[in-house]
Design a protein around this nucleic acid. Structure first.
Length: 754
RNA sequence: GGUUGUUUAGCUCAGUUGGUUAGAGCGCAUCGUUCACAUCGAUGAGGUCGGGGGUUCGAGUCCCUUAACAACCACCA
């Protein structure tokens, strides 16, 4: 044996494991009955995004690997299923940056071409991530690897969509959505970041009254002014109309309870198409909706000519100038408030009415709330249970359509010729020109259906447009059929991941894998996607399969740098897991990520910490080297460590007593997700109790110390294996030949018992 | 605006059901190279466990209050 542990042998060890097939569980002939007899331990890997190599956060899959290896050693049938997520908007955003470097943009390509380009790009990355996971020792069953872009997954997502449409759980409506004009897509509330902005409150004279607003640019779309019904000042005006300045249009004054008389002037301008509150008000009072900003962010034909074709910021200034000139701008106050920004590009979100697909969330949320409330699904650490329940309680309908190409195209087809004015089409023609208009306008220019279909970029259908859930069905009703160009929110797809990866079948012909492994046991992920992903999986799981998708949702925390700061490229404080593995070994990195970390708290990682764990790994190596040296002094060919006498010497008794306590505490700690405590105890036991005290104590004894030395070593190797699989395996293979009874790999050997 | 979390040695953090002189890693000081390991060993310095109050025979651990920091949620002009 070398004088120090050499981590370069780790890849070879991984290959050995993979070839042995221990990562691949065998599904019994009668999965349903077998599951009742003995439930398997199953984890579906939270699929990493396909757009980037792994970062330190992914290295935390270590926690899952630890659980999986532990259960495998316990003898449980164990499955850890890998996969990758296409990560819709995330990936498209990364790809667009890449396009930008080449002087291109998404507008230069038709839908199909762009999709194909992203697909190729993503495929290059997928193998990188896979090899990285192997490098870190993750005992995943690669024979079952999945990708969210697999046809069978898409097929399942489509079938669930159709079922939800049929049952009225999905609807199409033109509502206020969070729209990013730069990214060109709508977002859910969760994807909006609220930032504090120093702005102004402008007081503008609206005929006989004055309104106070933070968004003067929307006044061109005002269709009412609202006041509190109890407000004495305005009682005479309620029910009457006033003239909207600059536009010179009559708009009503309405009474609305939610208006705070204390704020501003107590009179609020109402812009139903560009403000969520105003939208609700308008629905209630049957006001007119006038959308003045288009999806490209510019003002449209609904505003007076001089204001057309500008961005909100520009319109704002023009209006303020004009109001000032006419003496209608009475006052400007400093005002600080929260404004929604796009979580991807950081630009302000424009609330815009747009036709989108929505999930009616309440029926799903009610059940998802109940299972957690009743602890049928255990959320760990407990504090996340509370935030989950709070969120579930007043969750709003979920907009699931995204105006991007990278994702699952919504399986809905329109007959564009039947309702020619209801579709807003954009496509690139044969000459490479971008053409825009409705069906009539485009046909007038002489374009054919085939040319439009081939070059199609986007199709925006009126909410009243008739749609069909399959292409065949649509073709029965019209000859010019086009598919919806919106794609699903990624979480609509990944929310169905647990049952989809296991082979759930819409017709009920489920795969043996599904029957045996579903519901899964543990879902481990970072708390930042508790609502995005965990909550959606619970809702979908219950809705589609009638069962919860997993029994435990274990939330881990984020990896920070040595100062507790979030890692980011711009800060330059990222620690690359692969660089660290090459330098110090994967075991050292894994140990550094779990040791002494309290459940759910941030994990501060530093190279110093990894180096310290490398030293620990080396300590194991060298202690083993010492024991083997002692063994060589023996004449015996093999040693029986199953039946040892530890009562002869006090130090033997002491170490075996401690070892037995360690077996118990380690088992308990892993079972209760206290990995930080478990690894800490193992570290202390091995280095202090075993090496510094016990080994030293045996040095003045002869070979009669060997059986206990060996017994404690082998047992602690097994206990440490889930955390640091490589060194324990490497050492075990050195020791194995002299053991009387042994498994071929430590990875397949039994968990120690007292 | 609402909610949650954090505050323990110079640094990063453990400390589950309250119980003897409060722990680890790194860093620091002194010493030690005879054959497991200098990626090592021995010894040591260093903490009024954010502040205040309370419960208790006993509190870092439970309760109240306060301060600082962090994060999450949020359609008020």
């Amino acid at each position: 044996m070398d004088k120090t542990y050499n981590p370069s042998q780790e890849s070879a060890i991984y290959d050995q494991w993979e070839k042995s097939g221990i990562f691949t569980p065998v599904v019994p002939k009668n999965p349903v009955q077998s599951r009742l007899d003995k439930e398997p331990f199953t984890i579906i890997l939270p699929p990493p995004n396909a757009n980037n190599p792994l970062h330190a956060g992914h290295a935390l899959y270590t926690v899952e690997d630890t659980m999986v290896r532990f259960h495998r050693m316990l003898g449980d049938p164990t499955l850890w299923l890998p996969g990758t997520d296409h990560a819709g908007i995330e990936t498209q955003f990364v790809f667009e940056k890449y396009l930008q470097k080449q002087g291109k943009s998404r507008f230069d390509y038709d839908r199909q071409t762009l999709f194909k380009m992203i697909f190729d790009y993503v495929n290059q990355n997928r193998d990188v991530a896979k090899n990285q996971m192997k490098r870190l020792g993750f005992s995943l069953d690669w024979t079952r690897e999945k990708f969210t872009m697999d046809q069978d997954h898409i097929g399942r997502v489509y079938s669930v969509f159709r079922k939800m449409v049929d049952e009225g759980l999905i609807y199409r409506d033109e509502k206020i959505v969070n729209y990013c004009t730069f990214c060109g897509t709508a977002f859910s509330n969760l994807e909006v970041e609220h930032k504090t902005v120093n702005s102004h409150l402008w007081y503008i004279k609206y005929g006989p009254l004055t309104v106070a607003t933070t968004r003067p640019e929307t006044m061109l779309g005002d269709t009412a002014v609202a006041v509190n019904p109890k407000d004495q000042r305005y009682q005479d005006l309620v029910g009457k109309t006033i003239t909207l300045p600059l536009v010179n249009k009559e708009i009503p004054v309405i009474a609305e309870e939610s208006i705070d008389p204390e704020f501003g002037t107590g009179a609020v301008k109402v812009t139903p198409s560009h403000s969520p509150e105003d939208y609700d008000m308008a629905k209630k009072h049957h006001l007119e909706f006038i959308r003045i900003f288009d999806y490209d962010g510019k003002s449209n034909d609904n505003v007076p000519k001089k204001y057309r074709g500008f961005y909100p910021k520009e319109v704002r200034q023009m209006l303020l100038d004009d109001l000032q000139a006419q003496g209608l701008l009475l006052k400007t106050e400093d005002y600080t408030h929260e404004v929604g920004h796009c979580y991807k590009c950081g630009r302000p979100i424009e609330p815009i009415t747009a036709p989108q697909w929505f999930v009616k969330i309440k029926p799903l949320a009610d059940k998802a709330e109940e299972v957690v409330k009743k602890d049928e699904i255990l959320i760990f650490p407990k504090r996340f249970k509370k935030s989950y329940l709070t969120w579930m309680k007043d969750v709003r309908d979920w907009p699931i359509s995204r105006q991007i190409v990278w994702g699952h195209q919504i399986p809905v087809w329109y007959c564009v010729d039947n309702e020619p004015t209801k579709f807003d089409l954009t496509f690139i023609d044969k000459k490479g020109q971008t053409v825009h208009g409705n069906w009539f306008q485009i046909c007038d220019q002489g374009y054919s259906y085939d040319e439009i279909k081939l070059g199609l970029q986007s199709l925006i259908a009126d909410t009243a447009a008739k749609y069909y859930l399959s292409e065949e069905e649509a073709k029965k009703h019209g000859s010019f059929v086009l598919q919806e160009t919106d794609t699903f929110d990624t979480w609509f797809s990944s929310g169905q991941w647990p049952y989809s990866t296991l082979g759930w079948d819409p017709e009920g012909h489920h795969s043996p894998d599904f029957e045996y492994f579903y519901p899964t046991t543990v879902l481990d992920t970072m708390w930042d996607i508790l609502f995005f992903w965990v909550a959606r999986m619970i809702m979908f799981g219950i809705y589609t399969t009638g069962q919860i998708p997993f029994k435990v949702a274990h939330m881990h925390s984020r990896v920070t740098d040595s100062k507790g700061q979030k890692m980011s490229k711009s800060k330059g404080n990222v620690i690359d897991p692969l660089t660290m593995s090459d330098k110090y070994g994967a075991d050292a990195l894994r140990m550094a990520l779990v040791i002494g970390v309290a459940p759910g708290s941030d994990i501060s990682l530093s190279e110093d910490k990894i180096r310290a764990q490398r030293n620990f790994v080396n300590k194991i190596w060298n202690a083993s080297r010492f024991v083997l040296m002692k063994v060589e002094q023996l004449e015996a060919h093999s040693i029986d460590i199953e039946n040892i006498d530890s009562n002869k010497y006090p130090e033997d008794k002491e170490i075996t007593t401690k070892l037995n306590a360690l077996i118990e505490s380690t088992t308990n700690n892993i079972n209760t997700y206290r990995f930080g405590q478990a690894s800490e105890d193992l570290y202390q036991f091995f280095w202090k109790s075993y090496c510094d005290v016990y080994i030293e104590a045996t040095k003045n004894r002869g070979v009669d110390a060997v059986p206990v030395l060996l017994h404690v070593l082998v047992t602690s190797l097994k206990l440490m294996h889930p955390f640091i699989p490589f060194v324990t395996e490497a050492v075990y293979q050195q020791i194995r030949p002299i053991l009387k009874q042994s498994d071929e790999l430590i990875a397949s050997s039994g968990w120690p018992k007292n």
